[in-house]
Design a protein around this nucleic acid. Sequence first.
DNA 1: TCATTTTATAGAACTATTCTAAATTGGGAT
DNA 2: ATCCCAATTTAGAATAGTTCTATAAAATGA
Lengths: 140, 140
Amino acid sequence: MSQTSTDILREAGISPSSQRVAIAEFVLHTGSHPSADEVLVQARKRLPGISVATIYNTLNLFVEHGLLRTFSLSQNHTVYDACTDPHHHFIDDETGRIHDLPIDAVRVSHDNFDDFDIREVQVVLRGRTNPQNPPAKLAK
Amino acid sequence: MSQTSTDILREAGISPSSQRVAIAEFVLHTGSHPSADEVLVQARKRLPGISVATIYNTLNLFVEHGLLRTFSLSQNHTVYDACTDPHHHFIDDETGRIHDLPIDAVRVSHDNFDDFDIREVQVVLRGRTNPQNPPAKLAK
DNA sequence: TCATTTTATAGAACTATTCTAAATTGGGAT
DNA sequence: ATCCCAATTTAGAATAGTTCTATAAAATGA
Ligand SMILES: [Mn+2]
Ligand SMILES: [Mn+2]
Ligand SMILES: [Zn+2]
Ligand SMILES: [Zn+2]
């Protein structure tokens, strides 16, 4: 049942060029929240000549078509998130690594702000990853 | 009893040069979460010749001494937050304006992640500001 | 095949921030 | 008051992530 990257692109209305597929193979299937640069490195393992411009064009295209989300943690560190449905994040202060948390692992309640129409709630937990524990059972 | 900017700087161990005071006068007393560029504009109203380098040097200095916090919402939009104690944020999708929310206006509970040592919980609400309501009674 | 459109590419341009190296400042000490 | 000197400020160069531009290559399909 698992769709190929080509299928995913077609379903999103994106014609699956070899470059796009090479990028998709990595970026749509990683939980690592990579930067554009990390995507470049991975994509070049499959398609050594792929250009930087194509990486950016393609990542932007994927975001526009809802296959990726993007967020900025600090200046000059934009990352891409392959998980597009709502979820939360834990960020390791030491390594900077971002972990997905299932949406229902965090509950948020808030006052009724009559001034605000809330569309989305995003929680970021920061701290340290406990070293003695196994790598973590992570989000969907 | 309200401390002058000069006092605040001295207490933080920063010698209050005229440039630093000019910047502090604005950035330590605004709730608007300004960018470096907005700080430059405001500081130049008091000290027209102040340089860009000084804006960045000083903002970084204030952050290092705990007078400001910084965060990035999107690539190339780093803002400074004069409120350094824990609180949450509402971001207006349309205008990009950031509003502080009192820490106790949002309650978060989460599973025990034995893999993570959580040090900080940050909530960002996104949506639209309700136009018919008054400008909002905002955070401390 | 050929014409047309789409996609990819190199490299220039852009922009926020940091760096560098030189000038200016201002508070003691004399 | 003057001198000294460390601290501070400054202009402009450098850097880095991203976007733009103009050209080339590839795919499409009649
Ligand atoms: Mn998948
Ligand atoms: Mn104040
Ligand atoms: Zn995620
Ligand atoms: Zn704030």
